[in-house]
């Protein structure tokens, strides 16, 4: 089970990242949970001061951008 977290205050890019991450997880055929983390204190707790950010299994994978579905699939592999 992959734990995917999208860090961001709810901006359009944050929503876009959540969509792409979910699509990538489905395409990769992995079991996953997806959480949108909007609380600024939790976001900074990851050492992230720029959003959106993508976290997979507790590891910050990208910051300040929306990677492609293919890139996220590779991160989920």
């Amino acid at each position: 089970m992959k734990r995917i977290q999208v860090l961001g205050p709810g901006c359009p890019k944050c929503a876009r990242l959540a969509e792409v991450a979910e699509a990538a997880a489905k395409a990769a055929g992995v079991e996953y949970t997806l959480e949108k983390v909007t609380d600024i204190n939790r976001i900074t707790g990851f050492g992230v001061m720029m959003t959106p950010a993508l976290v997979i299994d507790g590891e910050v994978k990208t910051v300040g951008k929306v990677p492609s579905a293919e890139e996220i699939k590779a991160m989920l592999a």
């Binding site: 205050p9 709810g10 901006c11 720029m50």
Partner: peptide, 23 residues
């Protein structure tokens, strides 16, 4: 506001990945 949230303007350059080059 930053991306529709209540984050202050001073954080706007770090919000949503910013607009231009991310330096």
């Amino acid at each position: 506001e930053c991306c529709g949230s209540s984050r202050p303007k001073q954080a706007a350059s770090s919000c949503c990945g910013g607009g231009g080059k991310n330096v």
